[in-house]
Amino acid sequence: MIHGTIVVAKDICKACELCITACPQECLELSPHLNEKGYRYAQLKNDTCTGCINCAIVCPDSAITVYRESKKKNAS
């Protein structure tokens, strides 16, 4: 399976949880920590992310950057 990961911009995440419901792998959760605005920002909870970008597409604050293993490296 293709492996991916995400980086959430902690400062602008508003904890709306839309990414959590959009994730088909259920690999997102709210952090127990707060950001400076007082929101529990989203974070990865396990390593099952496939880099499908669903979370980033529904994020209203464009806070998510998605990385994915490149296919070329997989082949070699």
């Binding site: 492996h3 991916g4 990961t5 980086v7 806070a63 950057t65 998605v66 990385y67 994915r68 490149s70």
Partner: peptide
């Protein structure tokens, strides 16, 4: 060994 670090991955989606 299988874990790939972020540096080895390509960005597939970012803020426009």
């Amino acid at each position: 060994e299988n874990v790939v670090t972020k540096n080895e991955m390509e960005i597939v989606y970012k803020k426009p």
